[in-house]
Design a protein around this nucleic acid. Structure first.
Length: 895
RNA sequence: GGGCAAUUAGCUCAGCUGGUUAGAGCGCCACAUUGACAUUGUGGAGGUCACUGGUUCGAGUCCAGUAUUGCCCACCA
């Protein structure tokens, strides 16, 4: 039984993963009687490679799921991929363009392009699958789903139809964000703003002056809006009309008074509006029932309304329009330093132009959804489930952000003019579009029906992810079943929904998490998950976002794993990261955790060698000896191990993954390796040694599944199976021994003190520390380990001239009853010692005083929990005792 | 403009409901090493806890303000 000298992840990880997979440990049983624990893996976009964002997600979720599996839950982790509508389509189109195709949409047509995209998706799904495996993710591959699977498509259609029937989905002419480059609408969340310096013009418009950065949109402006209380314009009344000379001749304009849209202190306090191309103006126009006119076409070029400018792009038209107005003497001034923000598409980076278009929307304000015996709007349900804590968000502060987002939520435009995605389940009869419309899961019977050419926003299908993945795929074509029937006939849905944890990046709280809550509460009448755990972004060493364009700081998990191992990568991302906060990652950090893993690997080797020397098979060691036959070090580490189990379990229950991880790290390195194994060199109890090692491996397994599983094979108790299927340890009160632990700590302190003495500079001939401290420690505490203290401390030849300052405190504190300090007495600087004692006494008395004061406070005594009051009283007692001792010692020093 | 967060050692970060001398990892310096482990061990240097006030016997921790940084939301004609 021997392990290689250094842990080599490359050599073992893949085969261990296969072993897990073949053992069936990943596969959950829908008919099990165990309590279920489900996580839906946020499906990576099927567009390419896994990056660190995925890696951190996989690491966190794998820890959750492995922990719960070991706790004895029926643990299910559903993997999958997302078709990522617009993202994928634009990637493939770009690729085809690179290959020489000018306009793939036109050249290929719908069917062929969709086939191309599907082919591309197939390839990248394969690479994603293998990458997820590389991370050690213990997900249930037998339940892998894809957002375009037939059953998921079925669910999408069912929900659409249901929402349509409930009048939550409607079709209307509304203002949307139009991406002329991709020729599609994009959602509010898919827009980002880029700051741009653009000239800011002020023009004369009839009797008013108006300002704009976009004169090319102003052709159709025929309303001027002002605040009703604005003194400057009180002679104008709402509805007044006037004629103004404008770009292409005179126009008749109407005065509108509106108190919400206008800030009188800004600029001239007057504006004209362009309802067709501005969200705010659109709302205003709707409020006042104003006319709207399209100025810019869907191709981004000006329409006939622009007169001589028709057909020009915005960029070209702007200077020309300005020039014309200038010549007419209508240009009042130009501010060249104006900075405004331009909306660009998150995906295609094209400039987004608001447009009015006929689109499909989800109404978020209509109170028609039954929820716990009330009728609520989707917005209200989204608020309700968080407010009532049916769903809790970690960290909590994101709840505020979430509420704020909902307050500003407008109806959700769900139709997209792209081809890749779930096609809208609506059919029109060619002859009379408006009159003959069919909304249904299946196409209507009869001739002449044509399906809506639009597809659904990708978040529509992602919003169903937690449950559409659990509906039985074999029912995809059982069209006689309703949505509720589908739920009832799906064992997975019955067993595993709602899920327990949704773990994802805070950057898609709105995109996705909120939409899942919306769609799931509506469709299933239940929440999609109980807890939302939001992780932060992984940044570079300098706190910048990692990007492919900067290979210096870019960390690719696929490079890291072969080099340092998946375990090291996992630890380096988890320890030191708190939920909702960004963290930094760089190679040295990963190397540090690789060292840790190697350290434990070697510690395990050492344990195995000890067993080997004693001709004992570690696997036969299953019983712990009675505690009174054990050495102090053994009893101490057994105690510490139990406390470790307690701490780690509690931290994991509270989703404090970083805490649990660093607790394990320091236990293994600082305590198990540096102290316990060192001391055990003088004669270890193998049962204890192996027991503690097993505990460590078990507790660490969720974090470092590969290495722990590999070592486990050598030390597992007879009859045990894989570590992945091992039970999480229970705390055993019997093995706790705080007394032994404290005593051991004393020993550690004494040894440390001796080490310090050794390193003191001015050591000369004189007293022999060895004889003073070591003999006492030897006889009193550590009979078995005496030789090793000697070895550790290396005090054999050590002699001192002067007493180092820290030693007497340590020794006198812990070994007050022996002649240690008497022997040392002559070496002590009496004045210094007295001064430090006085200081300590003063300090203690202060605390005693304040605590006593608090105890006299009736408020405190009656309101605080009894245990706290007791603890305070106990504190006073022990501190008084301490003061007594200090006084005693102080007096004994006074000569 | 509104909101959220952060500011602790050269770097990356812990520090829970206030309580003895503020911790860790990396880096740095010195020493050690035929030993489970150089992917190692021991020791050391290095911090006015951003600043100013306040509450308290006691503040890195609580409160108020200031500064700097980051993020989110809304956007201005």
């Amino acid at each position: 039984m021997s392990l290689p000298k250094a842990y080599d992840p490359k050599a073992v990880e893949d085969s261990i993963y296969t072993m897990w997979e073949e053992s069936g440990a990943f596969t959950a049983d829908a008919h099990s009687t165990k309590e279920s624990f489900t996580i839906s893996m946020p499906p990576p976009n099927a567009t390419g490679q896994l990056h660190l964002g995925h890696a951190v997600m996989l690491a966190l979720e794998d820890i959750f799921i492995r922990y719960q599996r070991m706790r004895g839950k029926e643990a299910l982790w559903v993997p999958g991929t997302d078709h990522a509508a617009i993202a994928t389509e634009s990637v493939v189109i770009k690729q085809l363009q690179k290959e020489g195709m000018r306009d793939p949409r036109k050249e290929l047509g719908r069917e062929k392009l969709v086939a191309k995209i599907a082919e591309f998706v197939g390839k990248s799904q394969n690479s994603i699958r293998s990458q997820i495996r590389k991370m050690g993710a213990s997900c249930d591959w037998s339940r892998e789903r894809y957002t375009m699977d037939p059953i998921l498509n079925r669910c999408v259609n069912e929900v659409f139809v249901k929402m349509y029937a409930d009048e939550l989905i409607y079709r209307g002419h509304r203002i949307v964000n139009w991406d002329p480059k991709m020729q599609t609408t994009v959602s509010d969340d898919e827009i980002e703003y880029v700051e741009q310096k653009a000239p800011y013009y002020t023009f004369q418009y009839g009797p008013f002056q108006i300002s704009t950065a976009r004169p090319e949109t102003k052709f159709g402006d025929k309303y001027v809006v002002m605040h009703p209380d604005d003194e400057r314009y009180k002679q104008y009344k709402d509805g007044d009309t006037f004629v103004a000379e404008w770009i292409n001749g005179p126009v008749t304009a109407t005065v509108i008074k509106d108190k919400d849209a206008i800030d009188p202190s800004f600029g001239t306090g007057v504006m004209t509006i362009t309802p067709w191309h501005d969200h705010v103006d659109f709302d205003l126009a709707e409020r006042h029932g104003l006319q709207k006119e399209q100025i810019i076409g869907f191709d981004g070029k000006l329409l006939p309304i622009a007169g001589e400018f028709e057909g020009l792009s915005i960029e070209k038209a702007r200077p020309q329009v300005v020039e014309k107005l200038k010549q007419k003497g209508l240009l009042v001034k130009v501010d060249e330093n104006y900075v405004h923000r331009v909306a660009v598409s998150y995906r295609g980076k094209g400039i987004v132009e608001p447009q009015i278009k006929e689109q499909w929307f989800i109404d978020v304000n209509k109170p028609v959804v039954p929820w716990k015996r009330k009728k609520l709007s989707l917005k209200q349900i989204m608020q309700e489930v968080i407010r009532t804590k049916l769903i809790s968000i970690i960290p909590e502060r994101f709840e505020k952000v979430y509420f704020h987002w909902i307050d500003n939520l407008r109806d959700w435009c769900i139709s997209r003019q792209i081809w890749w995605g779930h096609r809208i389940p609506v059919w029109y009869k060619k002859t009379d579009r408006a009159a003959d419309m069919h909304v249904g899961v299946l196409p209507p019977k009869g001739e002449g029906w044509e399906q809506d050419s639009d597809t659904l926003d990708t978040w529509f299908s992602s919003g169903l992810w937690t449950w559409s993945t659990l509906v039985d795929p074999s029912l995809a074509e059982s069209y006689d079943l309703s949505l509720d029937d589908l739920f009832k006939k799906s064992p997975d849905f019955q067993k595993f929904h709602p899920t327990q944890v949704m773990e994802t990046g805070y950057d898609i709280l709105f995109f996705w998490v909120a939409r899942m809550i919306l769609m799931t509460t509506y469709a299933t009448g239940d929440i999609p998950f109980e807890t939302v755990y939001l992780h932060g972004l992984i940044r570079t060493r300098d706190g910048k976002k990692m990007s492919k364009s900067d290979p210096e700081t870019m960390i690719d998990p696929l490079d890291i794993i072969p080099k340092y191992g998946a375990d090291a990568l996992r630890l380096s991302m988890i320890v030191g990261q708190s939920p909702g906060a960004d963290s930094r990652l760089y190679e040295e950090k990963i190397a540090g955790y690789r060292n840790f893993i190697n350290k434990l690997w070697n510690a395990s080797r050492f344990v195995l060698m000890q067993c080997d020397q004693a001709k004992t098979d570690p696997r036969t060691l299953t019983e712990l000896p009675d505690s009174d036959t054990l050495s102090l070090a053994d009893r101490a580490i057994l105690h510490a191990t139990e406390v470790l189990i307690e701490d780690v379990t509690k931290a994991l229950e509270d989703y404090q993954l970083s805490d649990a991880g660093s607790r394990l790290y320091s236990f293994v390195w600082d305590y198990f390796c540096d102290w316990y194994l060192e001391l055990s060199k003088g004669g270890a109890n193998l049962s204890v040694l192996v027991h503690v090692l097993r505990r460590i491996l078990t507790l660490l397994h969720p974090y470092c599944p590969f290495m722990t599983e590999e070592v486990w094979a050598s030390v597992q108790p007879e009859g045990a199976g894989l570590l992945i299927a091992e039970d999480w340890p229970e705390v055993k009160a019997k093995q706790k021994d705080p007394g032994a632990f404290r005593e051991f700590q004393i020993l550690v302190d004494v040894i440390t003190a001796i080490r310090k003495m050794r390193s003191e500079q001015n050591i000369e001939q004189g007293k022999n520390v060895h004889t003073i401290v070591y003999t006492k420690v030897y006889t009193k505490l550590m009979e078995k380990q005496a030789e090793h203290i000697k070895r550790l401390a290396r005090v054999g030849e050590l002699t001192i001239e002067k007493q180092p300052e820290k030693l007497p405190n340590v020794v006198s504190e812990f070994l007050p009853d022996i002649e240690v300090h008497l022997s040392l007495e002559g070496l002590i600087d009496v004045e210094k010692e007295r001064a430090s004692l006085a200081k300590e006494k003063e300090h203690l008395e202060k605390i005693i005083h304040s605590t006593e004061q608090r105890l006299q406070n009736q408020d405190f005594v009656t309101r605080a929990p009894a245990a706290v009051v007791e603890a305070e009283k106990e504190k006073v007692r022990t501190m008084k005792e301490k003061v007594g001792k200090i006084e005693e010692r102080f007096n004994s020093l006074g000569v």
